[in-house]
Amino acid sequence: MKPEADQILMFSAIKLASEYAPQIPTQYGQGMAQVVAALMFMSAQEYDRAADIRASENADMRALFKLLAPQIADAGLRRDLETAASAREESLRVSALNASNEHLRKILIRLHAHLDETGADTRPVWDVLKAMAARRTLTLPG
Protein backbone atom coordinates (compact mmCIF):
# COMPACT_ATOMS: atom_id res chain seq x y z
CA MET A 1 0.00 0.00 0.00
CA LYS A 2 1.29 3.46 -0.82
CA PRO A 3 1.39 5.40 1.39
CA GLU A 4 2.56 2.81 3.91
CA ALA A 5 1.40 2.99 7.51
CA ASP A 6 4.75 4.35 8.73
CA GLN A 7 4.52 7.32 6.39
CA ILE A 8 0.95 8.01 7.47
CA LEU A 9 1.97 7.89 11.12
CA MET A 10 5.00 10.11 10.54
CA PHE A 11 3.14 12.78 8.56
CA SER A 12 0.24 12.70 11.03
CA ALA A 13 2.68 13.20 13.91
CA ILE A 14 4.19 16.21 12.17
CA LYS A 15 0.76 17.76 11.52
CA LEU A 16 -0.37 17.09 15.09
CA ALA A 17 2.75 18.54 16.68
CA SER A 18 3.17 21.57 14.45
CA GLU A 19 -0.38 22.57 13.45
CA TYR A 20 -3.10 21.01 15.57
CA ALA A 21 -1.55 20.89 19.06
CA PRO A 22 -0.82 24.64 19.23
CA GLN A 23 -4.53 25.31 18.60
CA ILE A 24 -5.66 23.31 21.63
CA PRO A 25 -6.78 25.89 24.21
CA THR A 26 -5.30 24.37 27.38
CA GLN A 27 -1.66 23.83 28.32
CA TYR A 28 -2.51 20.32 29.45
CA GLY A 29 -4.12 19.44 26.11
CA GLN A 30 -1.20 20.89 24.17
CA GLY A 31 1.33 18.99 26.26
CA MET A 32 -0.46 15.68 25.91
CA ALA A 33 -0.91 16.19 22.15
CA GLN A 34 2.85 16.64 21.82
CA VAL A 35 3.42 13.37 23.68
CA VAL A 36 0.91 11.61 21.42
CA ALA A 37 2.76 13.02 18.39
CA ALA A 38 6.03 11.60 19.77
CA LEU A 39 4.34 8.21 20.22
CA MET A 40 3.13 8.31 16.62
CA PHE A 41 6.67 9.15 15.49
CA MET A 42 7.99 6.16 17.47
CA SER A 43 5.23 3.92 16.11
CA ALA A 44 6.24 4.89 12.59
CA GLN A 45 9.78 3.66 13.31
CA GLU A 46 8.46 0.46 14.82
CA TYR A 47 6.11 -0.36 11.94
CA ASP A 48 8.91 -1.25 9.54
CA ARG A 49 11.21 -2.98 12.00
CA ALA A 50 8.94 -4.72 14.52
CA ALA A 51 8.96 -8.19 12.97
CA ASP A 52 12.65 -7.97 12.06
CA ILE A 53 13.65 -7.01 15.62
CA ARG A 54 11.78 -9.93 17.13
CA ALA A 55 12.89 -12.47 14.52
CA SER A 56 16.52 -11.34 14.89
CA GLU A 57 16.38 -11.50 18.69
CA ASN A 58 14.85 -14.95 18.59
CA ALA A 59 17.48 -16.17 16.13
CA ASP A 60 20.28 -14.72 18.28
CA MET A 61 18.95 -16.37 21.42
CA ARG A 62 18.56 -19.75 19.69
CA ALA A 63 22.11 -19.52 18.31
CA LEU A 64 23.39 -18.68 21.80
CA PHE A 65 21.54 -21.63 23.33
CA LYS A 66 22.96 -23.96 20.69
CA LEU A 67 26.47 -22.65 21.39
CA LEU A 68 26.31 -22.92 25.17
CA ALA A 69 24.10 -25.97 25.76
CA PRO A 70 26.99 -28.47 25.59
CA GLN A 71 28.75 -26.61 28.45
CA ILE A 72 25.79 -26.70 30.83
CA ALA A 73 25.93 -29.38 33.51
CA ASP A 74 22.37 -28.80 34.74
CA ALA A 75 20.44 -31.44 32.78
CA GLY A 76 17.07 -29.64 32.89
CA LEU A 77 18.48 -26.36 31.68
CA ARG A 78 20.56 -28.07 28.99
CA ARG A 79 17.49 -29.89 27.68
CA ASP A 80 15.47 -26.64 27.58
CA LEU A 81 18.31 -24.90 25.74
CA GLU A 82 18.51 -27.66 23.16
CA THR A 83 14.74 -27.76 22.64
CA ALA A 84 14.51 -23.97 22.26
CA ALA A 85 17.52 -23.87 19.95
CA SER A 86 15.95 -26.33 17.53
CA ALA A 87 12.54 -24.62 17.35
CA ARG A 88 11.49 -22.39 14.45
CA GLU A 89 8.99 -19.54 14.06
CA GLU A 90 5.55 -20.73 13.06
CA SER A 91 4.30 -17.31 12.02
CA LEU A 92 5.73 -13.87 11.27
CA ARG A 93 2.88 -12.08 12.99
CA VAL A 94 4.27 -9.80 15.71
CA SER A 95 2.03 -11.44 18.31
CA ALA A 96 3.44 -14.89 17.43
CA LEU A 97 7.02 -13.61 17.40
CA ASN A 98 6.39 -11.99 20.79
CA ALA A 99 5.18 -15.29 22.22
CA SER A 100 8.37 -17.02 21.06
CA ASN A 101 10.42 -14.09 22.29
CA GLU A 102 8.98 -14.24 25.78
CA HIS A 103 9.58 -17.99 26.00
CA LEU A 104 13.18 -17.57 24.84
CA ARG A 105 13.78 -14.65 27.23
CA LYS A 106 12.75 -16.77 30.18
CA ILE A 107 15.31 -19.40 29.21
CA LEU A 108 17.93 -16.70 28.59
CA ILE A 109 17.42 -15.39 32.13
CA ARG A 110 17.87 -18.90 33.56
CA LEU A 111 20.97 -19.44 31.46
CA HIS A 112 22.54 -16.12 32.46
CA ALA A 113 21.80 -16.69 36.15
CA HIS A 114 23.33 -20.16 35.90
CA LEU A 115 26.49 -18.77 34.29
CA ASP A 116 26.69 -16.05 36.96
CA GLU A 117 26.36 -18.63 39.72
CA THR A 118 29.00 -20.93 38.30
CA GLY A 119 31.43 -18.14 37.46
CA ALA A 120 31.43 -19.06 33.77
CA ASP A 121 32.13 -16.63 30.94
CA THR A 122 29.03 -14.49 30.37
CA ARG A 123 30.38 -12.42 27.48
CA PRO A 124 28.43 -14.33 24.80
CA VAL A 125 25.21 -13.61 26.73
CA TRP A 126 26.06 -9.95 27.10
CA ASP A 127 26.81 -9.71 23.39
CA VAL A 128 23.28 -10.92 22.67
CA LEU A 129 21.77 -8.59 25.29
CA LYS A 130 23.67 -5.60 23.92
CA ALA A 131 22.45 -6.37 20.40
CA MET A 132 18.88 -6.76 21.67
CA ALA A 133 19.00 -3.43 23.50
CA ALA A 134 20.56 -1.63 20.54
CA ARG A 135 17.88 -2.88 18.12
CA ARG A 136 15.05 -1.71 20.38
CA THR A 137 16.39 1.83 20.85
CA LEU A 138 14.12 4.56 19.48
CA THR A 139 14.90 7.95 17.99
CA LEU A 140 12.98 11.00 19.16
CA PRO A 141 11.70 13.66 16.77
CA GLY A 142 13.83 16.79 16.43
Binding site: I109, A113, A133
Partner: peptide, 9 residues
Protein backbone atom coordinates in the same frame (compact mmCIF):
# COMPACT_ATOMS: atom_id res chain seq x y z
CA UNK B 1 4.50 -8.04 31.48
CA UNK B 2 7.36 -9.74 29.66
CA UNK B 3 10.63 -11.28 30.88
CA UNK B 4 13.36 -8.66 31.37
CA UNK B 5 16.77 -10.34 30.97
CA UNK B 6 18.78 -7.12 31.22
CA UNK B 7 17.03 -5.97 34.39
CA UNK B 8 17.45 -9.40 35.97
CA UNK B 9 21.15 -9.42 35.10
Amino acid sequence: REPQPIARA
